[in-house]
Design a protein around this nucleic acid. Structure first.
Ligand SMILES: [Mn+2]
Ligand SMILES: [Mn+2]
Ligand SMILES: [Zn+2]
Ligand SMILES: [Zn+2]
Lengths: 148, 148
DNA sequence: GCAGTAATTGCATCTGTTCGCAATAGCGGA
DNA sequence: TCCGCTATTGCGAACAGATGCAATTACTGC
């Protein structure tokens, strides 16, 4: 699996942005991760191939790729951000507060809520990578047992 | 309105935590704000009354109060955190990506989603101060106009 | 190919937040 | 009321992330 399936280079140029080696390296680094990747992981992978790339460029480029919607981000707790190549359909996550496990849920599941908010408040929610916090089945059972 | 309606001091002691002047000052400072308050605002208010209190204490105490669920937090974009006294019923927010306006929505609105997730994945979502991002009516209309 | 232009980068610096550690001070028990 | 235990604090330093600016460089049109 790779980001090569979009012509991201053309996509950038179309909108008046430039295709730089840094941007390609960073996109590659996110791809290599497969799933969620932290800025620090991206930095390390990029730096392995091209040590001169600056940390500031990593952060600016991650923001840039999110704005282009080539990449999605989420805060998975304790203000730790993770980045990921944007798939064809959005997906979301459930993060356990106790064990930290991250599960995935479909966009289908949350769509109804976004539609309701659109109807009731005229507000267009456009989150394509939401993180919801709570307790996973295992930790919840452990908590119930503990309370008795 | 004030946090005096709970016996937060007893609540802390019950659970084996200590009631310190710093914690009381910080709780007061959040109260004074009325609504959403940033760590820096808390710091300023506390420091006005007691200049020796350290910044690290502010951050540690805000986390602590969130864990006790006396206070709720939310990232309202660009990793800016806001804190607020936890009310009797939770509420949530809609944050406009363009103008930054923050609206409020009831827990009622999102409850159905949490219940569905509980049913379908056995995962207990327990968020009491969610922030959803998107476009407010005004900005969305502006955007539509711009695209033509 | 080459030059002009503006987007992008690297660098230096700043800000907000976290962390380890030693000093302080709540709280429970004598 | 005093004592001892340990939770909490202040301090200093580390840290991630953002920002202003000058140097670089990708793209456009010739
Ligand atoms: Mn994901
Ligand atoms: Mn709120
Ligand atoms: Zn868990
Ligand atoms: Zn708006």
């Amino acid at each position: 699996m790779s980001h090569q399936r979009w012509d991201y280079a053309a996509l950038m140029r179309e909108r008046g942005f430039r295709v730089t080696p840094q941007r390609q390296l960073i996109l590659d680094a996110i791809c290599e991760g497969g799933g969620h990747t932290t800025p620090e992981e991206v930095y390390e992978r990029v730096r392995a191939k091209s040590p001169a790339v600056n940390r500031a460029t990593i952060y600016r480029t991650l923001d840039f790729l999110c704005e282009l919607r080539l990449v999605v981000a989420a805060d998975v707790g304790n203000r730790r951000m993770v980045y990921e190549i944007a798939g064809d359909t959005p997906h979301h996550h459930l993060v356990c507060r106790t064990c930290g496990k991250v599960e995935q849920i479909s966009h289908e599941t949350v769509k109804a809520l976004f539609a309701k908010i659109e109807r009731e408040q005229e507000f267009t929610v456009d989150m394509d990578h939401l993180a919801l916090f709570g307790l996973c089945p295992k930790c919840r059972r452990a908590e119930l047992r503990g309370k008795r």
